[in-house]
Protein backbone atom coordinates (compact mmCIF):
# COMPACT_ATOMS: atom_id res chain seq x y z
CA UNK A 1 0.00 0.00 0.00
CA UNK A 2 1.46 3.32 -0.93
CA UNK A 3 1.63 6.53 0.98
CA UNK A 4 0.37 9.51 -0.94
CA UNK A 5 1.50 11.78 1.82
CA UNK A 6 5.18 12.24 2.40
CA UNK A 7 6.53 11.71 5.90
CA UNK A 8 8.32 14.99 5.77
CA UNK A 9 5.07 16.93 5.27
CA UNK A 10 4.49 19.99 7.37
CA UNK A 11 1.11 19.21 8.97
CA UNK A 12 1.02 16.52 11.62
CA UNK A 13 -2.78 16.40 11.56
CA UNK A 14 -2.93 15.70 7.86
CA UNK A 15 -0.30 13.03 8.28
CA UNK A 16 -2.36 11.37 11.00
CA UNK A 17 -5.47 11.49 8.80
CA UNK A 18 -3.48 10.09 5.91
CA UNK A 19 -2.19 7.23 8.01
CA UNK A 20 -5.63 6.62 9.45
CA UNK A 21 -7.06 6.23 5.96
CA UNK A 22 -4.15 4.04 4.89
CA UNK A 23 -4.66 1.92 8.00
CA UNK A 24 -8.39 1.60 7.36
CA UNK A 25 -7.71 0.57 3.78
CA UNK A 26 -5.27 -2.12 4.74
CA UNK A 27 -7.21 -3.11 7.85
CA UNK A 28 -10.40 -3.37 5.81
CA UNK A 29 -8.87 -6.15 3.72
CA UNK A 30 -7.75 -7.97 6.84
CA UNK A 31 -11.16 -7.47 8.44
CA UNK A 32 -12.89 -9.08 5.46
CA UNK A 33 -10.60 -12.10 5.63
CA UNK A 34 -10.74 -12.27 9.43
CA UNK A 35 -14.51 -12.16 9.40
CA UNK A 36 -14.54 -15.21 7.15
CA UNK A 37 -12.03 -16.98 9.37
CA UNK A 38 -14.18 -16.10 12.40
CA UNK A 39 -17.40 -17.30 10.76
CA UNK A 40 -15.92 -20.68 9.95
CA UNK A 41 -14.34 -21.00 13.37
CA UNK A 42 -17.73 -20.17 14.87
CA UNK A 43 -19.60 -22.98 13.19
CA UNK A 44 -16.84 -25.60 12.96
CA UNK A 45 -14.26 -24.71 15.61
CA UNK A 46 -11.76 -24.74 12.78
CA UNK A 47 -8.96 -22.24 12.24
CA UNK A 48 -9.04 -22.54 8.48
CA UNK A 49 -5.51 -22.24 7.16
CA UNK A 50 -6.89 -23.02 3.71
CA UNK A 51 -8.75 -19.71 3.68
CA UNK A 52 -5.93 -18.07 1.74
CA UNK A 53 -6.50 -20.51 -1.12
CA UNK A 54 -9.65 -18.60 -1.97
CA UNK A 55 -7.38 -15.70 -2.88
CA UNK A 56 -4.90 -17.96 -4.69
CA UNK A 57 -7.55 -19.64 -6.84
CA UNK A 58 -9.23 -16.29 -7.51
CA UNK A 59 -5.86 -14.86 -8.53
CA UNK A 60 -5.37 -17.54 -11.19
CA UNK A 61 -8.97 -17.10 -12.36
CA UNK A 62 -8.24 -13.40 -12.76
CA UNK A 63 -5.00 -14.16 -14.57
CA UNK A 64 -6.81 -16.54 -16.95
CA UNK A 65 -9.41 -13.94 -17.79
CA UNK A 66 -6.91 -11.10 -17.97
CA UNK A 67 -4.77 -12.85 -20.60
CA UNK A 68 -8.00 -13.37 -22.55
CA UNK A 69 -8.25 -9.59 -22.67
CA UNK A 70 -11.24 -9.43 -20.34
CA UNK A 71 -11.77 -6.11 -18.62
CA UNK A 72 -11.83 -5.60 -14.87
CA UNK A 73 -15.60 -5.28 -15.11
CA UNK A 74 -15.58 -8.99 -15.91
CA UNK A 75 -12.69 -9.85 -13.62
CA UNK A 76 -14.22 -8.28 -10.55
CA UNK A 77 -17.39 -10.45 -10.33
CA UNK A 78 -15.40 -13.47 -11.55
CA UNK A 79 -12.91 -13.10 -8.69
CA UNK A 80 -15.68 -12.89 -6.11
CA UNK A 81 -17.64 -15.76 -7.63
CA UNK A 82 -14.51 -17.92 -7.81
CA UNK A 83 -13.81 -17.32 -4.13
CA UNK A 84 -17.37 -18.29 -3.17
CA UNK A 85 -17.33 -21.44 -5.28
CA UNK A 86 -13.85 -22.40 -4.04
CA UNK A 87 -14.90 -21.90 -0.43
CA UNK A 88 -18.00 -24.09 -0.74
CA UNK A 89 -16.05 -26.67 -2.77
CA UNK A 90 -13.28 -26.93 -0.16
CA UNK A 91 -15.90 -27.56 2.52
CA UNK A 92 -17.61 -30.17 0.35
CA UNK A 93 -14.46 -31.93 -0.80
CA UNK A 94 -12.29 -31.74 2.31
CA UNK A 95 -13.90 -30.65 5.56
CA UNK A 96 -17.20 -32.51 5.31
CA UNK A 97 -15.45 -35.85 5.81
CA UNK A 98 -13.54 -34.86 8.93
CA UNK A 99 -16.18 -32.66 10.53
CA UNK A 100 -16.99 -35.15 13.25
CA UNK A 101 -13.32 -35.88 13.93
CA UNK A 102 -11.09 -34.02 16.34
CA UNK A 103 -10.25 -30.34 15.96
CA UNK A 104 -6.70 -31.41 15.24
CA UNK A 105 -7.80 -33.57 12.29
CA UNK A 106 -9.65 -30.60 10.82
CA UNK A 107 -6.65 -28.34 11.38
CA UNK A 108 -4.39 -30.81 9.57
CA UNK A 109 -6.94 -31.04 6.78
CA UNK A 110 -6.84 -27.28 6.34
CA UNK A 111 -3.05 -27.40 6.07
CA UNK A 112 -3.41 -30.27 3.61
CA UNK A 113 -5.77 -28.25 1.42
CA UNK A 114 -3.38 -25.32 1.55
CA UNK A 115 -0.41 -27.39 0.38
CA UNK A 116 -2.37 -29.38 -2.22
CA UNK A 117 -3.73 -26.22 -3.88
CA UNK A 118 -0.32 -24.58 -3.78
CA UNK A 119 1.37 -27.68 -5.26
CA UNK A 120 -1.29 -28.01 -7.94
CA UNK A 121 -0.57 -24.50 -9.23
CA UNK A 122 3.19 -25.14 -9.06
CA UNK A 123 2.84 -28.39 -11.00
CA UNK A 124 0.22 -27.46 -13.56
CA UNK A 125 0.77 -23.72 -14.06
CA UNK A 126 4.13 -22.46 -12.87
CA UNK A 127 6.18 -22.02 -9.75
CA UNK A 128 6.83 -18.44 -10.69
CA UNK A 129 4.32 -15.62 -10.44
CA UNK A 130 2.15 -14.64 -13.37
CA UNK A 131 1.43 -10.97 -13.82
CA UNK A 132 -1.54 -9.25 -15.34
CA UNK A 133 -2.44 -5.63 -15.82
CA UNK A 134 -3.96 -3.71 -12.97
CA UNK A 135 -6.83 -1.26 -13.44
CA UNK A 136 -5.59 2.10 -14.62
CA UNK A 137 -7.17 3.98 -11.78
CA UNK A 138 -5.37 1.94 -9.13
CA UNK A 139 -2.65 4.54 -8.60
CA UNK A 140 -4.94 7.51 -9.00
CA UNK A 141 -5.10 9.87 -6.08
CA UNK A 142 -7.68 12.42 -5.10
CA UNK A 143 -7.12 15.49 -2.99
CA UNK A 144 -9.54 16.23 -0.19
CA UNK A 145 -8.86 19.30 1.96
CA UNK A 146 -5.29 19.28 0.80
CA UNK A 147 -4.71 15.65 1.65
CA UNK A 148 -4.08 13.20 -1.15
CA UNK A 149 -5.78 9.83 -0.88
CA UNK A 150 -5.32 6.82 -3.11
CA UNK A 151 -8.55 5.90 -4.83
CA UNK A 152 -7.92 2.24 -4.11
CA UNK A 153 -7.77 2.93 -0.37
CA UNK A 154 -11.04 4.83 -0.44
CA UNK A 155 -12.58 2.06 -2.56
CA UNK A 156 -11.46 -0.58 -0.10
CA UNK A 157 -12.86 1.37 2.82
CA UNK A 158 -16.18 1.86 1.02
CA UNK A 159 -16.33 -1.80 -0.03
CA UNK A 160 -15.43 -2.91 3.48
CA UNK A 161 -18.14 -0.78 5.02
CA UNK A 162 -20.72 -2.06 2.53
CA UNK A 163 -19.57 -5.67 2.95
CA UNK A 164 -19.59 -5.50 6.71
CA UNK A 165 -22.98 -3.78 6.62
CA UNK A 166 -24.30 -6.55 4.39
CA UNK A 167 -22.79 -9.20 6.67
CA UNK A 168 -24.32 -7.60 9.74
CA UNK A 169 -27.67 -7.42 7.97
CA UNK A 170 -27.47 -11.11 7.00
CA UNK A 171 -26.41 -12.17 10.48
CA UNK A 172 -28.86 -9.99 12.37
CA UNK A 173 -31.94 -9.85 10.16
CA UNK A 174 -32.19 -13.10 8.28
CA UNK A 175 -33.06 -16.46 9.72
CA UNK A 176 -30.02 -17.86 7.94
CA UNK A 177 -27.84 -15.36 9.74
CA UNK A 178 -29.50 -16.05 13.07
CA UNK A 179 -28.92 -19.75 12.45
CA UNK A 180 -25.23 -19.12 11.81
CA UNK A 181 -25.00 -17.13 15.04
CA UNK A 182 -26.89 -19.86 16.89
CA UNK A 183 -24.58 -22.54 15.52
CA UNK A 184 -21.55 -20.40 16.31
CA UNK A 185 -22.64 -20.21 19.94
CA UNK A 186 -23.74 -23.82 20.49
CA UNK A 187 -23.86 -26.21 17.59
CA UNK A 188 -25.65 -29.02 19.41
CA UNK A 189 -28.39 -26.72 20.62
CA UNK A 190 -28.77 -25.33 17.11
CA UNK A 191 -29.32 -28.84 15.82
CA UNK A 192 -31.83 -29.49 18.57
CA UNK A 193 -33.82 -26.54 17.31
CA UNK A 194 -34.03 -28.11 13.87
CA UNK A 195 -31.29 -26.03 12.30
CA UNK A 196 -29.62 -28.02 9.53
CA UNK A 197 -25.91 -28.24 10.20
CA UNK A 198 -25.28 -28.80 6.49
CA UNK A 199 -27.04 -25.63 5.46
CA UNK A 200 -25.49 -23.51 8.19
CA UNK A 201 -21.98 -24.68 7.39
CA UNK A 202 -22.52 -24.22 3.66
CA UNK A 203 -23.93 -20.74 4.26
CA UNK A 204 -20.97 -19.84 6.48
CA UNK A 205 -18.47 -21.02 3.87
CA UNK A 206 -20.32 -19.17 1.11
CA UNK A 207 -20.41 -15.97 3.15
CA UNK A 208 -16.74 -16.37 4.10
CA UNK A 209 -16.00 -16.91 0.40
CA UNK A 210 -17.86 -13.75 -0.54
CA UNK A 211 -15.89 -11.70 1.97
CA UNK A 212 -12.58 -13.27 0.94
CA UNK A 213 -13.53 -12.64 -2.70
CA UNK A 214 -14.00 -8.93 -2.06
CA UNK A 215 -10.68 -8.82 -0.20
CA UNK A 216 -9.08 -10.77 -3.05
CA UNK A 217 -10.45 -8.33 -5.59
CA UNK A 218 -8.65 -5.39 -3.99
CA UNK A 219 -5.56 -7.43 -3.24
CA UNK A 220 -5.30 -8.43 -6.91
CA UNK A 221 -6.11 -4.96 -8.17
CA UNK A 222 -3.23 -3.74 -6.08
CA UNK A 223 -0.73 -6.47 -6.97
CA UNK A 224 -1.82 -7.73 -10.40
CA UNK A 225 -0.07 -10.94 -9.57
CA UNK A 226 -1.03 -14.62 -9.38
CA UNK A 227 1.32 -16.96 -7.57
CA UNK A 228 0.95 -20.35 -5.87
CA UNK A 229 1.49 -18.70 -2.50
CA UNK A 230 -0.55 -15.57 -3.24
CA UNK A 231 -3.03 -16.26 -0.45
CA UNK A 232 -0.53 -17.18 2.25
CA UNK A 233 0.26 -13.76 3.71
CA UNK A 234 -3.33 -12.44 3.52
CA UNK A 235 -4.51 -15.66 5.19
CA UNK A 236 -1.94 -15.34 7.99
CA UNK A 237 -2.94 -11.73 8.53
CA UNK A 238 -6.61 -12.67 8.53
CA UNK A 239 -6.06 -15.42 11.09
CA UNK A 240 -3.97 -13.06 13.18
CA UNK A 241 -6.70 -10.42 13.03
CA UNK A 242 -9.32 -12.97 14.05
CA UNK A 243 -7.10 -14.05 16.96
CA UNK A 244 -6.61 -10.45 18.05
CA UNK A 245 -10.35 -9.91 18.13
CA UNK A 246 -11.03 -13.26 19.78
CA UNK A 247 -11.72 -16.31 17.63
CA UNK A 248 -15.43 -16.77 17.12
CA UNK A 249 -16.25 -13.15 17.89
CA UNK A 250 -17.33 -11.61 14.62
CA UNK A 251 -17.16 -8.01 15.72
CA UNK A 252 -13.80 -8.86 17.24
CA UNK A 253 -12.58 -10.11 13.85
CA UNK A 254 -13.47 -6.79 12.25
CA UNK A 255 -11.83 -4.82 15.01
CA UNK A 256 -8.79 -7.08 14.93
CA UNK A 257 -8.41 -6.51 11.20
CA UNK A 258 -8.63 -2.76 11.52
CA UNK A 259 -6.19 -2.70 14.46
CA UNK A 260 -3.75 -4.87 12.54
CA UNK A 261 -3.94 -2.60 9.50
CA UNK A 262 -3.42 0.49 11.62
CA UNK A 263 -0.48 -1.08 13.46
CA UNK A 264 1.19 -2.02 10.20
CA UNK A 265 0.84 1.46 8.75
CA UNK A 266 2.16 3.08 11.91
CA UNK A 267 5.11 0.72 12.06
CA UNK A 268 5.93 1.27 8.40
CA UNK A 269 5.81 5.01 9.02
CA UNK A 270 7.75 5.21 12.24
CA UNK A 271 10.16 2.29 12.33
CA UNK A 272 13.68 3.37 11.38
CA UNK A 273 14.43 2.68 7.75
CA UNK A 274 17.16 0.24 8.72
CA UNK A 275 14.63 -2.17 10.26
CA UNK A 276 11.42 -1.40 8.42
CA UNK A 277 11.69 -4.81 6.78
CA UNK A 278 10.88 -6.29 10.16
CA UNK A 279 7.33 -4.96 10.31
CA UNK A 280 5.73 -8.40 10.21
CA UNK A 281 8.08 -9.67 12.90
CA UNK A 282 7.30 -6.72 15.14
CA UNK A 283 3.58 -7.21 14.52
CA UNK A 284 3.73 -10.84 15.62
CA UNK A 285 5.71 -9.89 18.75
CA UNK A 286 3.15 -7.21 19.61
CA UNK A 287 0.33 -9.68 19.18
CA UNK A 288 2.18 -12.19 21.36
CA UNK A 289 2.45 -9.51 24.06
CA UNK A 290 -1.28 -8.82 23.67
CA UNK A 291 -2.00 -12.51 24.26
CA UNK A 292 0.03 -12.43 27.47
CA UNK A 293 -2.55 -10.01 28.87
CA UNK A 294 -5.58 -11.13 26.84
CA UNK A 295 -5.01 -14.83 26.12
CA UNK A 296 -8.28 -15.17 24.20
CA UNK A 297 -7.99 -11.93 22.30
CA UNK A 298 -9.74 -8.65 22.88
CA UNK A 299 -13.19 -10.25 22.88
CA UNK A 300 -12.96 -13.56 24.72
CA UNK A 301 -15.23 -16.11 23.09
CA UNK A 302 -17.58 -18.24 25.11
CA UNK A 303 -16.78 -21.91 25.29
CA UNK A 304 -19.02 -23.96 23.07
CA UNK A 305 -19.06 -27.31 21.40
CA UNK A 306 -18.57 -28.40 17.87
CA UNK A 307 -20.78 -30.84 16.02
Amino acid sequence: MGHAFTRSGPLAVTEIIQQFVDGLGRGGEYALIALGVGLIFGVMRLVNFAHGELITVSAYAAYGLAISQMSWWVLAPAIILTAIITSVAIEFIAFRWVRSSSDFAMLLTSFGVHFVVQAAFVMYVSASARHFSRPEWITTTVSISGIRFEVVDLSIIAATVVSLGFTVWVLQRTVYGMSIRAAAEDFDTARLLGISSERVIRAAFALAGLLAGIAALFFLMRTGRAAPSAGLVPMLKGVLAALIGGLGRLQGAVLGGLLLGMAEILLVSYLPDSIDGMVNGVIFILVAILFVFRPSGIFSPRPSQRV
Binding site: V175, M178, S179, R181, A182, A190, L193, G194, I195, S196
Partner: peptide, 8 residues
Protein backbone atom coordinates in the same frame (compact mmCIF):
# COMPACT_ATOMS: atom_id res chain seq x y z
CA UNK B 1 -34.33 -14.66 17.82
CA UNK B 2 -34.14 -17.76 20.01
CA UNK B 3 -37.69 -18.53 18.94
CA UNK B 4 -37.24 -17.59 15.28
CA UNK B 5 -34.29 -19.92 14.75
CA UNK B 6 -36.39 -22.79 16.06
CA UNK B 7 -38.82 -24.70 13.87
CA UNK B 8 -36.87 -24.04 10.70
Amino acid sequence: ENLLVSAT
